[in-house]
């Protein structure tokens, strides 16, 4: 059963997203809303990772070797300035999107495995990931015209 690999993928993606949220929060501390909400969402990602861990451990006992190129690197550090903020939020968006689709995949697998506990975690967390995507989109929509058309 390969479910452990996707749980591992999602777990690491949540950890990476938490870390990236914190880096963006620090790098753009002069945007107080970005700073505060990125900190808040980092904690949410921590919680998601924490909830996934027991399932990852349990299923890893039944798992074959991890396939090649399971994980991907989506974040390589923050930038500065108006367009830098936009670009950093876009990185977060792509990372959250990876989590979002991974929740869907893991949720499908939970149905297949008849694992109600795992399904409960997915149902709770996928909605919070969806809100993260929505917030990032909202904030980027607000920032884009000024950063791309107005600022010199």
């Amino acid at each position: 059963m390969h479910l452990a690999h996707y749980l591992g993928l999602l777990h690491r993606a949540q950890c990476n997203l938490a870390d990236a949220f914190r880096q963006v929060a620090d790098a753009h501390a002069e945007e107080p809303d970005v700073h505060h909400l990125c900190q808040q969402q980092a904690k949410r990602c921590d919680e998601h990772a924490e909830r996934l861990r027991p399932f990852a451990e349990r299923y890893s006992e039944e798992a074959p070797a991890e396939p090649d190129r399971l994980h991907s690197e989506l974040f390589t550090g923050t930038r500065t300035g108006g367009i830098g903020l936009l670009r950093d939020l876009q990185d977060l968006y792509l990372m959250a999107a990876q989590c979002d689709i991974s929740w869907t995949v893991v949720g499908q697998a939970a149905y297949g495995a008849r694992d109600e506990d795992l399904l409960g975690v997915v149902k709770r967390c996928e909605g919070e990931t969806a809100i993260q995507l929505k917030w990032l989109r909202t904030r980027m929509k607000q920032a884009a015209p000024q950063a791309l058309v107005v600022a010199e």
Partner: peptide, 9 residues
């Protein structure tokens, strides 16, 4: 909007 983040629906 989402009340904890301000995300627009």
């Amino acid at each position: 909007q989402d009340l904890s983040t301000g995300a627009e629906f």
